[in-house]
Design a protein around this nucleic acid. Structure first.
Lengths: 354, 354
DNA sequence: ATGAAAGCGCTAACAT
DNA sequence: ATGTTAGCGCTTTCAT
């Protein structure tokens, strides 16, 4: 290939406007000490020539790279992509992250990192050294991985931890898993349910525990027993199936179930069908995450949204602020979730309103 | 923020190995004229220090940026993300593109560009000047947009046009829409169907036309009439609904329908249910794209896959080859599609095997 | 086969 | 308020 050079550089602009490089640089970066008329003249040249600063050169000269790196778990992401089950975590991250980045003249770069490898640090270092991002966004389970968090802490690069509430290096941005689990439970309690089962997610993810906590808290507050109503899953369809059977094959089966993600809710729906338990007449069901599949099940699932786009957007905002030297928020940043009502919830069988 | 500098640079490596910067550079880039023992010594230092070249610096000095830019339509992509209907085009692009990039030490950057704006060129120029990618991947409908194609042609950057068969600047990589439509039609013909309806997609996308062509060719080859069996849609659910009604409310309705995408197939399914036409007993249905929703419909849809991951992967390969100076393939590169058999196809009513 | 020098486009630091 | 100088980390000449 021909050696490619920047077509229009800061030099061309400076020459065209008849000013120094520095003045052009000041205009580009909105710095003070430029008279309005100068600024206007330079801007006119920029527009005329179609000049765009080279990120590489900006980075080289020790300033910002205008790059935010979003890091996701490699194996899990690829598995989701291959499965084509509609998990749209990545899409929602991009939606929230790219748009917010664009607002500030930044760019989001999406990267996969292998957590399980013993050279996580090598991989991270590789991405950081190669791209020199101004900020990094960590997602679960990376966001609670001490090795990663400590390593990034040493790198002097602002980073946000999505779905984490822990203190330590980096800015935590949580999605209020406990609160929304509580909310979902209260939603069912308000409709007359007392026996509300809960299918937990993989303990590899801290949020699994928080969701259980929220359910327990709401049940306790309502004075409802939770004896054998907790079943363990791991977010997979198969685990949801087993958990649903465990919950539904007993005589004193719950009248409602909350599943910690959509796949397990889908499995629960299937188990209910096999057991001839009608949803929502005989069993109400609320799922977590609100991924696309909730539209396509029979009945469509009432679900607790996981506000990934909003959370990523917030994380980008905090990162850009940090990069400008602003102090991160003192308190934990929490983005709250919403329940999307569809058709999988009804009052329990035999209830007055049923 | 503190001014961040590269922790380990080529200088550190050179000093550690006791050689010149140049020798290190040669080792990094696998260039000739380095004795094996030298190479080994340098590599040892690189590993020891955890050195990773800075992309910015590499780009600055006029060499590769190791960046491949994947450009998608802004409005449509954002609309898909917001709708959360499980369209996983972007995910599949990333799957194919990122993995192939990683194999070659490249990185894929995903960008949104607004086609409809009158300053497409400005937007493109912005991305190119800022990132200086080594290659660009265009997707429909951009890949057939003359304004964009011509503009990129002038930029001297290798680019691939996914889903395009046109000649001109850039390397076309097609998904064989015509062939797979023919294949789907033949699949139905082989099972005894003669009246096979077709719901076309938006004419804004060239592939819509190719799919119609494939259907027509197969029907003609089988001597089957296509009188009123073609209905126009635009890929939206609503348009699919209207098209399905047009096809199914007539007395001589088709015994099978091919829909140009999954959303329109879903709509067809719904229309059939409303009209009390059983799928697949009274109506067979094949959809295009094979997005996640095909798993969740009743019955699950037999669908023609759109091999986005494989196509993007191929595009990256061609781009990296081009960047190395290799000539692009003389013939059009075609990635073929597969039919995923599920439960929406059966022999026509009254057929021997029915 | 190796090294030294020049320069990529930009900004920080230092004049003026 | 504006201009000048030096240098970021790397690769391309061009020596040796």
């Amino acid at each position: 290939m021909a050696r490619r050079r920047q077509a229009v550089t800061i030099k061309h602009v400076a020459a065209d406007a008849g000013v120094s490089l520095q003045t052009v640089s000041r205009v580009i970066n909105n710095e003070p000490n430029v008279r309005p008329e100068m600024k206007e003249r330079v801007q006119a040249s920029i527009d005329k020539l179609g000049y765009v600063p080279s990120i590489a050169a900006q980075r080289m000269s020790g300033s910002r790279s205008y790059l935010i790196l979003a890091i996701n778990d490699r194996d899990r992401t690829i598995a989701d992509w291959r499965a084509r089950q509609g998990t749209d975590w990545v899409d929602q991250m991009l939606l929230g992250g790219m748009l917010k980045c664009a607002e500030h003249g930044y760019r989001m770069i999406f990267e996969l990192v292998d957590t399980h490898s013993d050279h996580v640090e090598r991989e991270l270092l590789g991405a950081i050294a190669a791209l020199q991002p101004d900020g990094i966004i960590l997602t679960p389970p990376h966001s609670d991985n001490p090795q990663i968090v400590n390593f990034l802490g040493e790198q002097k690069i602002p980073f946000a931890r999505i779905g984490s509430v822990q203190n330590g290096a980096g800015i935590p941005v949580s999605m209020d898993d406990e609160g929304s689990a509580r909310q979902a439970t209260e939603y069912l309690l308000a409709r007359g349910h007392r026996r509300i089962g809960f299918i937990a997610g993989s303990s590899e993810y801290a949020l699994s525990g928080w969701r259980v906590d929220g359910w327990q808290a709401a049940m306790a507050a309502a004075g409802a027993a939770i004896d054998s109503l907790l079943a363990q899953g791991d977010f997979s369809y198969a685990s949801g199936e087993a958990a649903a059977r465990q919950l539904l094959e007993r005589a004193d089966r719950p009248s409602a179930i909350i599943a910690s993600n959509d796949q397990m809710a889908l499995a629960t729906l299937e188990v209910a069908r096999a057991l001839e338990i009608a949803v929502p007449q005989d069993l109400s069901l609320i799922s977590f995450d609100n991924t696309p599949l909730v539209h396509f099940t029979q009945p469509p699932l009432t679900a607790v949204d996981q506000p990934i786009a909003a959370t990523t957007s917030k994380a980008v905002e905090l990162l850009i602020a940090a990069q400008k030297g602003e102090a991160p928020p003192a308190a934990l940043t929490v983005v709250s979730a919403t329940i999307y009502e569809r058709e999988s919830v009804a009052p329990p069988p035999g209830a007055p309103g049923a």
